[in-house]
Nucleic acid binder design. Structure first.
Length: 284
DNA sequence: AATCGTCACAACCGCCTGGTG
DNA sequence: CCACCAGGCGGTTGTGACGAT
């Protein structure tokens, strides 16, 4: 037997929201908040909508300070950097772009950025390159999943990740391809410092997520979001790092840094058409 | 002017996770 | 420990707008 639906689909309205529905929802939430119960909310205000639908509508369109469209080059660059590093974690990416929603970014990526990335090629080449790129991205994610499940050969004594990739991304440090040219900037330059810090804190994609590196980097940026916090660290792992010292690359052995760079570089190999950038050959 | 194809985006679906009793 | 529930998330679909033929 399948999971019970979150609402009675027969009596629930679907499709585009009318201005009246928007007004009802918006004014109620502005006055009363969500009450911590989205499922009950539509009944309270007399909307024939699923609670999830109300939540989505509020978060994506009715919430104050929402920006739509008009993505800047800087935002493109941030999205791309984060996608390379952490994959399709749209909510995390959105959290770094004030006023942007995960849905917006996801749509933007699927409809425009991806084309910008793989554009100006024959359909055949474009398809091949997309497939190659996605294989690389998913292979990287796959390594994380393997790391999360450990292996059957007893190497579990190594400090491999034991929680899922969502959490690993938070917990494992990453060095985001220092020296890589992106958008005319070199990662590691002053202008990219904020992105670099962010990627580092996020602990985005890198092959060493599967390697025995310290697992529990204190993630200062999640202090305000306990739900995103990884599980508590073993003391010995935590002790390897000083509070606020997350960017100290010495926490990663040189080999892992090399591998990280190589792996991200593989992903970047498909990106040279983006912004007309060229990958810094000297780093290869 | 009509038709067709493509694009962009809003919305839905279903799975996963964390909290609670 | 288990079951249930709501929230959150990413993938996918539906549809209107727009441009090309």
């Amino acid at each position: 037997m399948g999971r019970a639906p979150c609402c009675d689909k027969a009596s629930v309205k679907k499709g585009p929201w009318s201005p009246e529905e928007d007004a009802k929802l918006k004014s109620y939430i502005e006055q009363n908040g969500t009450g911590g119960n989205w499922i009950a909310l539509p009944q309270k205000i007399g909307l024939k909508r699923c609670g999830k639908s109300c939540r989505l509508r509020w978060l994506n369109y009715l919430r104050p300070n929402i920006k739509h469209g008009g993505f800047s080059e800087e935002e493109d660059r941030i999205i791309l950097s984060l996608y390379i590093s952490i994959g399709s974690r749209w909510s995390i990416i959105a959290a770094q772009l004030p006023g942007r929603t995960d849905n917006d970014i996801k749509n933007y990526w699927n409809t425009r950025l991806k084309k910008k990335l793989f554009g100006k090629q024959s359909h055949k080449d474009q398809r091949q390159q997309q497939q190659q790129f996605m294989r690389q991205v998913t292979a990287n994610d796959g390594m994380k999943q393997e790391a999360a499940t450990g292996d059957a050969n007893g190497s579990s004594s190594m400090a491999v990740a034991t929680y899922n990739w969502h959490h690993q991304a938070m917990a494992v440090p990453v060095q985001p391809v220092p020296g890589t040219m992106m958008g005319g900037h070199r990662i590691g330059d002053e202008g990219d410092e904020s992105i670099r810090k962010l990627l580092y804190k996020l602990g985005g994609a890198g092959p060493f997520t599967a390697l025995p590196v310290p697992q529990c980097v204190p993630p200062p940026m999640y202090e305000g979001s306990p739900s995103l916090m990884p599980p508590p660290c073993p003391e010995d792992a935590t002790a390897l790092l000083n509070e606020g010292d997350v960017q100290d690359s010495s926490v990663l052995p040189a080999l892992e840094l090399d591998q990280s760079f190589h792996f991200n570089q593989v992903k970047l190999d498909g990106l040279e058409s983006f912004f007309g950038m060229s990958i810094d050959q000297s780093m290869r």
